[in-house]
Nucleic acid binder design. Structure first.
Lengths: 119, 119
DNA sequence: CGGTATCCAATTCGATACTG
DNA sequence: CAGTATCGAATTGGATACCG
């Protein structure tokens, strides 16, 4: 499972892109930032179309990259909560201007927005 | 050649990521911003390891996305110059905080930097 | 509920050879 | 110089079934 390279990098942008590359990672950051904390099934519902495999895989990589914290509650039925670490939160901040740029671009090219379920 | 989706998107970040996804795109933006204008062979030298195929493909997509301008000079031998459009320049601006985040992350995880040829 | 495991499809990337 | 064309390898993503 060699998704993230983790270096060597050409420049800062290269390193940052490495960590957010992956079909759903940017959306996961968005979800966790919006909601603070999210259970596995909640994330799944918030990301319409994601498969369990991809969601787990991305979450594991982001955990390994120090962006996401995974809290396991030893109860039955199982309960696991995901949240952004401090480092993940700084990434979210660094992404803000890019989010705005993307919103402007959506207007510019007239792309539709996929409706996201409110949880 | 279906690299860019161009919508529909979940959010601004999704749309922005769509446009910079691709192994070399972020580096191309970086190069063009640093140097203002770049010929094909110069870009190739500035991106050690890129194949001609990928470089052309990424440049064409970025042109189609309105990020890159391609100026062809009808001379022999052929001369083509690439540069950022205004829209591309706004993207570069939006990426600045992400670049800084990435630089900090490189320090944090102690990844080496690939040496880039000075042209 | 929160995952694994497995298999398969789609996409992306790279190497090489060739062209106006 | 600035590309095309082609092929195959590698990576990524998706569907389904099953488990503690």
């Amino acid at each position: 499972m060699a998704t993230a390279r983790r270096g060597p990098y050409f420049c800062g942008l290269d390193a940052a892109m490495d960590v957010v590359a992956g079909k759903w990672k940017s959306l996961i950051i968005w979800e966790l930032h919006e909601h603070g904390t999210r259970r596995f099934a909640e994330l799944r519902r918030g990301l319409p179309g994601v498969s369990e495999k991809m969601l787990v895989q991305h979450l594991r990589e982001m955990e390994e990259d120090g962006l996401v914290h995974r809290e396991v509650y030893p109860v039955v039925p199982p309960k696991v909560e995901y949240s952004l670490t401090e480092h993940g939160a700084t990434l979210n901040t660094a992404l803000e201007s890019l989010v705005e740029w993307g919103q402007e671009r959506i207007r510019r090219i007239g792309a539709e927005k996929v409706p996201v379920d409110a949880a």
